[in-house]
Nucleic acid binder design. Structure first.
Lengths: 282, 282
DNA sequence: TTGACTTTCAAACAGATGTTTTAATGTCCT
DNA sequence: AGGACATTAAAACATCTGTTTGAAAGTCAA
């Protein structure tokens, strides 16, 4: 009759028994895959519990309800690998000379390349801790409200950093609208490979997204986008100004570093947020 | 007890009574909106029937089951306005001289512009007969199997035509892989506005997709993409060849025609496919 | 061991939803 | 009108699914 009240949000109760994983952890992992695969509504707690080898009541006991588990999955996805790694390529590693001379434009272009490689590598990675990208994709099509918390914390800084980088590339006097349009164009090209994967798989049945294929795809998006950005280089308003941008296109920083960024996505052993919730009332 | 057996697939039983719409038609229209809004699983036949002002049993009577209605919605969406209108901009209206001289390259660029305007206009249109784009988007994230029929009939010709156009733009000797990558880049930029609409709405709360805004967005995608395509102009293999493409970028065919293409999406009075199915067994 | 507490378990509950049934109503031809 | 047929209507049915229950089992300190 009496239901215990676990600590509201304990700091980081990592499983002391490193051999076996605790039930909430198994639930979150299983739920991540299944939510990503079937969506929030279509996923059933029975299937989640079956894959997690847990009892059906475990979801409500540890997370309150199905939605609580979904929220925990998002927190876990954000905390473990997160998008910080991908977005890390957006900021300049060292504060260079502030005066934007034409020679310092190579660095932003290279950073954009690295960013695209990392983002696409994460998007197309089929590995286990990659389902948070699918979750994000699902949230975009069908928002459940959980996204609201995370959008300010992850996606907006992501976009802001990308837009600052674009501004570095096409000039500080470009209007905000141009920056926004270009950012969406770049992200859209990458995200398409996630959203429209079934379509792509059917249109090109022989296409396999190996690491090499991912690298080539990212390289194309970088080439295509840098060239597209060059349309706006030096613009001040909506009028079109042409500047064929020899500096930008020559800034292809080599595929070796990009390939390294595309791999190494799997992050393991990161302390995850564990979320326990008791019953609502009593 | 006895259930009638309607004709398996009657030719085109348009409602003789032009004043009131028949129940199957109302169902398809309502289902289109609701399926597009909530997805196949989340949409309930009760809500569909409520909006269509029909009885709950009407769905099973006229379409067999919920999935039959979903299939009929897809057939209707494909038949009525369909993507033919959008894809119409892809083919050259008149067979020009086959030898690809540099002067005839203006036409393909203009056609690409028109295509992007039409596609984005359809994607961002909130009007009533625009839900088939949302349905497609949902099918991409969460295929229900209905897509299989339509993908060969609609999406593949779409993509093939776009790829032919791209080949016209960047040269006949470009490898197929380059063509594919460019086609995906262009479509991805457009489709992003559909798939990631909630994200965009939250990132840019003040952004309203008026007709003028859609036009500007499409114009950007066209500029960005044509510039991106110029990266590959004259390429023969994966090696990068630069040709700043004065011809392509100068081919901006003016916003007037593009704006006209972006509007005029609503197509009415087209005979739709009506699908009747009786009970499965009896 | 005892006892308090936490976790797991099998079963049942309650609500929603797709579907079916049965009867009633409408429609059109003779 | 009469009858055959097509359609609509309200209610019930069957199933799936999230959730709850109450007890059993486990854990750990005193």
């Amino acid at each position: 009759m009496k239901r215990p009240a676990p600590p509201p949000l304990p700091s980081l109760p990592i499983t002391e028994d490193s051999g076996s994983v605790s039930t909430p952890d198994r639930l979150v992992e299983a739920a991540g895959e299944i939510f990503a695969e079937h969506g929030f509504q279509n996923a059933t707690v029975r299937e989640i519990c079956q894959r997690a080898e847990a009892n059906i009541a475990a979801v409500n006991y540890h997370f309150g309800d199905k939605r609580g588990l979904y929220h925990a999955v998002f927190l876990y996805a954000h905390s473990c690998a997160g998008s910080d790694e991908v977005a890390g390529h957006l900021q300049a590693s060292q504060p260079r000379a502030k005066d934007t001379s034409s020679v310092s434009k190579a660095a932003p272009a290279a950073r954009l390349r690295l960013y695209i490689h990392a983002l696409l590598g994460r998007i197309l990675d089929e590995g286990r801790p990659a389902w948070h990208a699918k979750l994000m994709a699902r949230e975009m099509v069908e928002p459940t409200g959980v996204l609201d918390d995370l959008i300010e914390r992850s996606i907006r800084p992501h976009f802001d950093a990308l837009q600052r980088l674009i501004r570095e590339l096409i000039g500080p006097r470009a209007p905000d609208e141009t920056i926004r349009l270009c950012a969406i164009s770049i992200v859209g090209q990458c995200v398409f490979y996630r959203h429209s994967r079934p379509i792509i798989a059917r249109l090109y049945p022989d296409l396999r997204f190996t690491a090499e294929q991912v690298r080539k795809t990212a390289e194309h998006i970088a080439d295509f986008s840098l060239e597209g950005l060059s349309h706006y280089v030096g613009t001040r308003s909506a009028t079109r100004a042409r500047a064929p941008s020899a500096a930008m296109s020559s800034a292809r920083s080599g595929s070796a570093a990009s390939g390294a960024a595309a791999s190494g996505v799997h992050v393991r052993g990161v302390p995850r947020v564990q979320m326990k919730r008791a019953r609502k009332a009593g």
